[in-house]
Design a protein around this nucleic acid. Structure first.
Lengths: 153, 153
DNA sequence: CCAGAAAGGTTGCATAACGAAACCAAATAA
DNA sequence: TTATTTGGTTTCGTTATGCAACCTTTCTGG
């Protein structure tokens, strides 16, 4: 019995979850955003089992989220770094972090600030073209022809 | 061997993933945002096994992301609806959707538009207090005292 | 009212994912 | 040279997942 495949459901959310939807992948990406690059550092900072970490890094590399860079003199020392695709997950990770802090309280000692001003970040929001924030009730789901979807039932 | 617990790692991202970090939870939430409320509708629209769906809905209710509302005349017909906490995941789901569309191409027939103007949404971004978009390189990670973190190693 | 279908689960079983620890080869440090 | 670090793989036991069958209560058609 293989896990349900999410990349053929015709849903981009499912497709994204197929790549980073397991328990560990986004945490590895988040850790990489903090500057971690070496296998052992991921292992110690996350408290993840070695085989799982090995598997996750391989999957992230296969999916183009990270790259394995050879930094050894004779080729047996590696670094794992984010690609542009991986760095682009910053929005997702930050939205998730803020959501957790809003609803579960401040459980994180770490804070993110604007490097230039030193001020904390603004809450991540969905916005329209004019930059006004939108809730899920302010949007409509339409198909490719622009017709509204009624797929509740 | 129980799964690694993410809610005691001192990381709000991990804490969030502890609640919605499995393969299915965010898809259930996304489906609820489309208007789905009934057990069988989730089942058919997602193609999820009944016991898994049952388990996920229970977990989402336990975590305050959804509520089970009794809609039967004599109490055996239910609806599952998003709470405010659940609706607040709209940002996360939308960021994930847009990320997937940017990097994996348009695999979704569905589009989100502003209900008022009918225009497509703006890309979700992390912003500073002035509303200027920030990448991961534009931010600094600091501890509670404002001192920069150097936890790469 | 009665038969059948539908809603919302639960249970059993087989397979896949996961975690901890042991083991291992190459490269580096002492 | 020996010890240690790095980046894994293997083994084994537990947990998660998928599928199908079953079960109870509630609608629905006649």
């Amino acid at each position: 019995m293989t896990r349900k495949r999410f990349d053929e459901m015709g849903c981009s959310v499912a497709c994204a979850l197929n790549e980073v939807g397991d328990w560990w992948s986004l945490l590895v990406v988040k850790q990489a955003m903090l500057g971690t690059r070496r296998f052992v550092d991921f292992q110690h900072n996350l408290g993840i089992a070695k085989n799982i970490l090995c598997n996750r890094l391989s999957r992230l590399v296969d999916n183009g989220v990270m790259v394995r860079v050879d930094v050894g003199e004779h080729g047996k020392r590696y670094e794992y770094r984010l690609t542009d695709k991986g760095r682009d997950l910053f929005t997702v990770v930050t939205a998730l972090r803020q959501w957790s802090e809003r609803w579960n309280g401040e459980k994180d000692t770490m804070q993110l600030v604007d490097r230039q001003s030193g001020e904390p970040l603004a809450p991540v929001t969905v916005q329209n073209q004019q930059g006004q924030p939108l809730t899920v009730r302010d949007v409509r789901f339409v198909d490719e022809d622009g017709k509204p979807l009624e797929e509740a039932g």
